[in-house]
Amino acid sequence: MKHLLGIEPLDRDEIGQILDAADAMLEISQREIKRVPTLRGRTVINLFLEPSTRTRVSFEIAAKRLSADAINVSSSGSSLSKAETLNDMAQNLAAMNADVLVVRDRTAGVPAMLAERVRIPVVNAGDGAHEHPTQALLDAFTVRQSLGSIEGRVVAIVGDIAHSRVARSAIHIFTKLGAEVRIAGPPTMMPVGIEELGVKPCSSIEEALDGAHVICMLRIQRERLEGALFPSVREYSRTYGLDLRLLRLARPEAIVLHPGPINRGVEIGSDVADAEPSRILDQVTNGVAVRMAVLYLLTGEQA
């Protein structure tokens, strides 16, 4: 694996390798001294051109726990505001002998574009509506941790599939690992041709949740989409919001995932978000381990 641009290019073995490495990394995060020298002297640049707290901090902690130097670059205050192109900027950052470039951008395809221009590994930390591979890896890791296995499980992904990189990466990882993936959401948020990815589109949240082992709720971008793709937040939460009543349709052992940040009372009720089946905070914990595994596999192995 030279870069991590998405889940789609990975095969089952490569995914398994990352998840196995993340097991070991999780153990490091549980120690009193949460740091190993694996990537000492290496530099990880977190190029975050779209606002993000959770993912940026998670990558930063992951790098530091491996003893790498983590440098954060965000769009405000960066040279991008001086009309430098992204390619020029990335090449300049790489020329400072960075070892990994972690990229978050609002435009699909940016990590792939930069990977062709810089000679160091590129990690996609979320690109537009394309992919968010470390999120999918931590989702799969969390399912494996909670349920023991992924093969044959029923995974329901609910919400704005069309604009969600989380949904695409989750679809790729769970189908590759042998789960049955169902999707549900307002028809305006179901992208054309999605069934060609091997998922089953459902006409209601009830149909999607029936007998599910894993429920992935997606965040609704209410400020951007209300009025255009759904009439109101009120109607959305009534039609596609997850509450305890709907949760009973799923398996008794079912778990609930959400990439965060959650809109309480919109796509997920507080009764579910804070309840036993919720794995939302475990996901965050596991996210650090998965990102440590990715940084290690992309750089540490060559050391």
Partner: peptide, 13 residues
């Protein structure tokens, strides 16, 4: 073009 390829790429079709 709006279709499976645009959907996979995350590009608006």
């Amino acid at each position: 073009h709006e279709g499976a390829h645009a959907t996979c790429c995350g590009l608006p079709g």
